[in-house]
Design a protein around this nucleic acid. Structure first.
Length: 219
DNA sequence: CCCTGATTCGC
DNA sequence: GCGAATCAGG
């Protein structure tokens, strides 16, 4: 599969969106995870938190004892030069919370109010007691509803996860089996048994169960 | 084991 | 330029 401009564009978007190389790879299709990573680097895309990095400052020298059976074809060019990485921006605002002090409650002060018809105290918007700062909100619950914890969702699927649907799409608790697959199949052993069945002779077939949601829409 | 990204190097 | 193989941390 070639890297067309379009696919490169998708790659960039996904990469910058934080998707993993694997996710990007099988979203694009036709490329491996390695291909995606390789391309990303060639494109000069920003590297992202990698497990195997950020290790430094410890010069561990093991002078001897590491022949490794010489699996390399060429002379292993060790000694990665500790070339000074680009100077980290080091943007640490060091600003003591001088600006984020909570708004102090308005001090009691002389106020002039007019009395409206019916004796109501007139109140202008400026007279409104200052609203306390809104509490910080979470966009996402810190903890998943226990009902969905442990459930296998669409994004959890992989080549070794059983993709047998449990429930129906659209239902709140729709999820996937999530068990280990029967190697070579998209389902676990149990669900392979459900998925792959020989046809019964016509006379032995049961009528199909009623379709959910009232069946196909007729226009 | 599984996952991740980085790097190398033959093509 | 490409990406499999390899490395290495979580």
């Amino acid at each position: 599969m070639a890297w067309t401009d379009e696919r490169i564009d998708q790659l960039k978007k996904m990469w910058e969106k934080g998707m993993t190389a694997s996710q990007i790879a099988d979203e694009l299709g036709g490329v491996s995870r390695n291909a995606v990573i390789g391309k990303a680097h060639r494109l000069g895309l920003k590297s992202r938190p990698s497990p195997v990095k950020a290790k430094d400052s410890k010069a561990k020298k093991k002078p001897a004892a590491k022949p490794k059976a010489a699996p390399k074809k060429t002379a292993p060019k060790k000694a990665a030069p500790p070339a000074a990485r680009s100077p980290e921006p080091q943007e640490k605002p060091a600003e003591a919370g001088s600006t984020e002090t909570a708004t102090p409650p308005a001090p009691p002060q002389q106020q002039y109010r007019s009395i409206g018809p019916g004796g109501f105290t007139r109140q202008s918007p400026a007279d409104q007691a200052p609203l306390p700062p809104a509490p910080p909100r979470r966009l996402v619950p810190a903890k998943l509803d226990p009902e969905y914890e442990e459930k296998t969702g669409l994004l959890d699927l992989s080549e070794r996860i059983c993709k047998w649907p449990m429930g129906h799409p659209g239902e709140p608790d729709f999820h996937f089996c999530g068990g280990p697959v029967n190697p070579g199949f998209p389902y676990c052993v149990e669900h392979c048994g459900r998925a792959y069945q020989a046809q019964l002779p016509r006379k032995d077939r049961r009528p199909p169960p009623p379709l959910p949601f009232g069946g196909p829409r007729v226009r």
